[in-house]
Design a protein around this nucleic acid. Structure first.
Lengths: 162, 162
DNA sequence: CTAACTGCAAACGGTTTGCTATTAT
DNA sequence: ATAATAGCAAACCGTTTGCAGTTAG
């Protein structure tokens, strides 16, 4: 089976450029990822993909996501809730602030921090090759906030020494 | 069975202050943790505890680290290799630089970064309650480095967008 | 005395993998 | 044609938990 319809997603195009074999399921998963505005976990990706093609298996989602990650077109995150969360790799680097009340994830960049990280590494005799910076925070504005982005499960609060 | 020998470890003292029931196995685990200079995972803690009392079960180690963590006298870290790593909670806050070649973990503090984190959160309308900052780096000095602190397993490199 | 603890083994939840049929190229 | 893939179910691995016997306070 080929085609189905419509314009290729950004991720699909990248896949083709990288010479990856494009199956229907990969195309669907690529589309779901490209269209995601949040940071879905595998279960959620599978659910969304299954809405398009109910036959897609969880194993395929896992394999595809790993493939995409290895192709550097997808970023995997671990926000401390046990499952891996994914985000299409774009050229703009950013870190994340996690609202521990709603689970919402906000992206941000701060160049001063970036540079300080390089400096710190250098002072210790190292060359920085990667980093992870997550801010866990609560809204200042005191209202009952909104819907949760985190699917389910027991978070067991992360961080604590701010 | 009580006693065995010697001076209480710092963690044991803290446990007693917190009113925790002190069993032999807890005392041993507390001692192992207090004497650790590295960031051991549960398996390693169990191995070290078992050298003192071969009867200690893995389940007990898991239950004890969870108990200690909840009592805020132990810090749990996740350096991206799947297992949890532990470190006695001291009053000095610090972040970690992970040498991805040797697995060694170096602690550091940088007040500028700390303050910038608060500022970033504030600008987004949030109050910072915790954070996670890990630098993944390689030694500048080009030599075959040293022994690994990471037990085993497949790390699957973390980070990448520095 | 008794609530809390330990060891054991079974259960768990996210993720990986062996196998066989299917498919992109 | 043929090497790579998808689906399924079983395996994995770190971690948790139910149960029955033991122990600290």
């Amino acid at each position: 089976m080929t085609s189905e319809k419509s314009v290729p997603s950004r991720l699909e195009t990248l896949c083709v450029e990288k010479g990856l074999k494009m199956t229907d399921q990969r195309r669907i998963i690529a589309r779901v990822l490209s269209e995601a505005q949040d940071h879905p976990d595998v279960e959620l990706l599978h659910k969304r993909a299954a809405e398009i093609d109910p036959g897609i298996s969880l194993a395929t989602v896992y394999r595809t996501v790993r493939l995409f990650e290895e192709a550097s077109i997808l970023e995997r995150h671990d926000f401390g809730d046990g499952r891996a969360r994914y985000e299409e790799a774009r050229d703009d680097h950013h870190d994340h602030l996690i609202d521990i009340q709603s689970g919402r994830v906000i992206e941000f960049t701060n160049n001063e921090i970036e540079q300080l990280q390089h400096r710190v590494a250098a002072e210790l005799g190292y060359k920085l090759v990667g980093h992870r910076l997550e801010l866990y925070a609560v809204p200042i504005d005191k209202n009952g906030s909104g819907e949760s982005e985190i699917p389910k499960g027991k978070p067991r609060i992360v961080g604590g020494g701010a």
